[in-house]
């Protein structure tokens, strides 16, 4: 399901994924909020156009008029990115996304994650590769959550994934970017967008990811678990924009010594 989009030529520095252009480089999850009103307020404050959603068994027997996520975030306004969070096998992930495609009227853009361990939520890379192969063959546009291993990232790109999404640190940990060098290797080698997915804790983490050259950042807990989620969503929007601008501006080289003061060395008094 894709919200109507502005043609890419009309956007300044758009994020392009699978042929679609997006103004925002911040993608957000929709879990862990206290209610749908807060979910919507945070998503709107983040400026995100792509929102992840989970696919779960319908609660049979609940009040049919009870509000739903689809009311809070209408698919006409946002691009839904159904995910496979909670899947521990390639088969479950593929089955979940086939259901998502039916649910969302043939929608092809999906987030694949196959977990390997309920304690750490670390990805199972072998199962992720297997599921990616099946899904790409089946016509899905796969944005794939994975470890920050540059060789695995290369293999996922070769399979045909439309975006590679390495973790910064473990899901929900808020530990920030633990291995910027690996991320840089992945970014330098990839021809598809690389987005940091998982582990961002605060605005500076998002800015660092973007300064490294990430095409975007996907986060949920960093916003939802903040004391003021809506305010943090706004902070993340600014951080992603600032980091992107700094990346495009090209930072000064790091030097052990300055030896080059910012003020003139001549004309001093005395």
């Amino acid at each position: 399901m894709n919200a109507p989009l502005v043609p890419s030529a009309a956007l300044v520095d758009p994020l392009e994924i699978a042929g679609h252009a997006y103004r925002s480089r911040l993608l957000v999850g929709t879990g862990k909020y206290k209610d749908f009103a807060e979910t919507r307020s945070a998503v709107v404050a983040s400026g995100a156009q792509i929102v992840t959603v989970a696919i779960r068994r319908t609660n049979i027997g609940q009040d049919p008029s009870a509000p739903s996520l689809l009311d809070a975030l209408p698919p006409s306004e946002f691009t839904y990115l159904p995910n496979t969070a909670g899947c521990y096998t390639a088969e479950d992930a593929v089955r979940t996304l086939r259901l998502a495609r039916e649910l969302l009227d043939g929608h092809k853009l999906v987030k694949l994650e196959v977990l390997g361990d309920p304690h750490t939520l670390f990805p199972n890379v072998r199962a992720t590769l297997a599921a990616a192969e099946t899904l790409v063959r089946d016509g899905f546009e796969v944005m794939v959550y994975t470890t920050d291993d540059p060789i695995i990232a290369r293999e996922l790109e070769a399979i045909g994934c439309v975006a590679i999404m390495p973790l910064a640190s473990l899901i929900g940990s808020g530990m920030g970017i633990l291995n910027p060098w690996n991320l840089k290797l992945i970014i330098d080698a990839a021809k598809v967008p690389v987005l940091v997915d998982a582990g961002v804790g605060t605005a500076s983490d998002a800015a660092i990811a973007m300064e490294l050259g990430c095409a975007g950042v996907l986060m949920n807990t960093a916003i939802a678990a903040a004391k003021d989620p809506v305010r943090m969503a706004g902070a993340m929007k600014l951080a992603v924009e600032a980091g992107r601008e700094a990346f495009l501006a090209g930072r000064m080289p790091r030097k052990l010594y300055a030896a080059s003061p910012s003020s003139p060395t001549s004309g001093l008094i005395g």
Binding site: G29, T30, G31, I55, T58, I60, Y80, N83, L99, A100
Partner: peptide
């Protein structure tokens, strides 16, 4: 079962059905 086929897809005793929707998630 595609939505367009609900009316002509039979259910029989003992069938297993999964009915899912979209919920908040990361």
């Amino acid at each position: 079962v595609p939505r367009s086929r609900y009316a002509d897809t039979p259910v029989a005793a003992g069938d297993s059905l999964e009915i899912v929707g979209a919920v908040g998630g990361g």
